[in-house]
Simulated assay, not measured.
Amino acid sequence: MTDAWPTEIRLHKDRRTLSVAFDDGVAYDLPAEYLRVESPSAEVQGHSPADRQLVPGKREVRISEVIPVGHYAVRLVFDDSHSTGIFTWDTFAQLGREQDERWKRYLQELAAKNLSRDAAGTTRHH
Rank of each mutant, 00 (worst) to 15 (best):
A111D: 08
Y72W: 12
A112T: 08
F87N: 11
V61T: 07
D14P: 09
R10T: 15
A21G: 08
E38P: 08
E43C: 00
W89F: 13
Y106M: 08
F87T: 08
A42P: 12
E98T: 01
R117E: 15
A112Y: 11
K104M: 11
A111V: 07
G46K: 03
S41D: 00
Y72T: 13
G46P: 06
P68Y: 02
P49H: 04
A42S: 11
R105K: 06
Y106T: 06
D80C: 14
P49E: 05
G57C: 11
R36K: 06
G57V: 13
G96T: 01
R59V: 14
D29M: 01
V44S: 05
E101P: 03
E8A: 14
L76Q: 09
G57Y: 13
P68S: 09
T88H: 03
V20C: 00
D14A: 12
A42L: 04
T91C: 11
V37I: 14
A93N: 11
T17N: 07
F78Y: 15
I9M: 09
A111G: 10
R75S: 13
L30E: 13
R10E: 14
W103C: 11
S83H: 13
K58R: 10
R59P: 00
Y72A: 11
A112V: 10
R124G: 09
A111Q: 07
S116H: 05
E65C: 04
D24Y: 01
D24N: 07
S48W: 02
I86F: 12
Y28S: 02
R59D: 15
V55M: 01
P56T: 10
H125D: 13
T88Y: 11
V74P: 13
S48Y: 00
R52T: 01
A73Q: 04
I86Y: 07
Y72I: 14
L18S: 06
H47Q: 09
A42W: 05
T2I: 10
D29G: 14
E38S: 11
T7F: 08
R36M: 02
A111Y: 04
F22K: 06
G57H: 13
S41C: 01
G121M: 03
S116A: 07
H12Y: 12
R97E: 10
G25M: 02
Q99L: 00
P49Y: 02
S83K: 08
G85H: 14
D24C: 01
E98V: 00
L107M: 07
S64Y: 02
